[in-house]
């Protein structure tokens, strides 16, 4: 049997394989992103960039829990202008680079895209779902009107594909997904972390400085699979699965649920950057075993039951 095809395309953005580095992990410098690309990622996504620099929260910003990690970094980023400077002084032409953006209002997204758009960025991912920063993220991402305005006005400013990253911390993710689709989103990233908390029993204190953070890792995977499954049955645009993927079996589960590509983040804490090659090989072997020519052939197969 011939070598299975791992390449995928999302709204015109072609990737050699369906594995992307999730936003928030390692994405501060181009050198780090390049390292992840060289480790086998099909695309890499930056940390979320905002209009102005933010230092984020005090430490502790991360704490491990059973089956995952809880983090509240607080959208630390150098601001769009500094970020533009760094990108324009780096070699990025061969890098399948997606820039993640967050903002408090539509005009901020618009302004950021107008600054960045001349660079060889392949797509944007709008982070409308950060679970722990007031005024940004989830407060936009659970308000249909805000989503509509942000997506529409960003879309006006660029021809590049727009991914919209959604939160599971809403009562009806399908409804929110449809709003994003109808507003012009080219793809949906499902999902961001789950609002959660951890308390130290010796000191009686919440461990994270921000008290509440976002839960990632294997523990949230079934939630993400459910969200991808439900949303992919109700929208036409491609879905990028994200949430607790640490093995090739996890990735396959997301494809079967309806994701066209998947993002990997927390798995790097467990497995290191080798996780990309490991998962790629697992997907390839699985496709051969199941006699499928392409990873595209298994997307959404669970819907038939």
């Amino acid at each position: 049997m011939q070598e299975p095809d791992l390449s995928v395309e999302i709204a015109g953005f072609k990737m050699k394989n369906p594995l992307m580095l999730a936003s928030g992990i390692l994405g501060i410098s181009i050198a780090s992103l390049r390292k992840v690309f060289e480790a086998g990622a099909g695309a890499v996504i930056t940390k979320s960039i905002g209009y102005k620099a933010r230092v984020g929260y005090d430490n502790p910003t991360l704490v491990e829990v059973h089956g995952g990690y809880l983090n509240a970094i607080g959208l630390s980023n150098p601001g769009v202008k500094e970020f533009y400077d760094e990108l324009s002084n780096s070699k990025i032409d061969d890098l399948p680079l997606v820039v993640s953006l967050f903002g408090a209002k539509p005009s901020e997204f618009k302004e950021m895209v107008s600054i960045l758009d001349e660079l060889n960025i392949r797509a944007y991912e709008l982070n409308l779902s950060c679970p722990h920063v007031k005024g940004f993220g989830i407060e936009v991402g659970q308000d249909p009107k805000a989503i509509r305005e942000v997506v529409k006005s960003t879309k006006e400013e660029t021809k590049k594909p727009l991914f919209v990253k959604l939160s599971p911390n809403v009562s009806d993710i399908v409804k929110i997904a449809k709003v994003a689709e109808n507003s012009g989103a080219d793809a949906l990233t499902i999902m961001n972390t789950v609002r959660a908390m951890s308390i130290d029993i010796e000191t009686f204190r919440p461990i994270l400085a921000n008290k509440i953070g976002g839960l990632s890792g294997p523990v949230i995977k079934p939630i993400a699979v459910r969200c991808v499954y439900e949303v992919s049955r109700s929208v036409r645009i491609p879905i990028i699965g994200c949430g607790g993927i640490t093995s090739w079996q996890d990735a396959i589960e997301f494809f079967l649920a309806g994701a066209r590509a998947v993002q990997i983040g927390t798995a790097i804490a467990y497995e290191g950057l080798n996780v990309f090659e490991k998962i790629k090989k697992g997907i390839r072997d699985y496709l051969i075993m199941k006699e499928k020519e392409s990873v595209r052939d298994i997307v959404g197969l669970s819907h038939g039951f």
Partner: peptide, 17 residues
Amino acid sequence: MKCGIGICGSCCIGKYN
């Protein structure tokens, strides 16, 4: 340093954490 375990990227220098 924030995470201390090589995932947040705050302590990057070149391609290293």
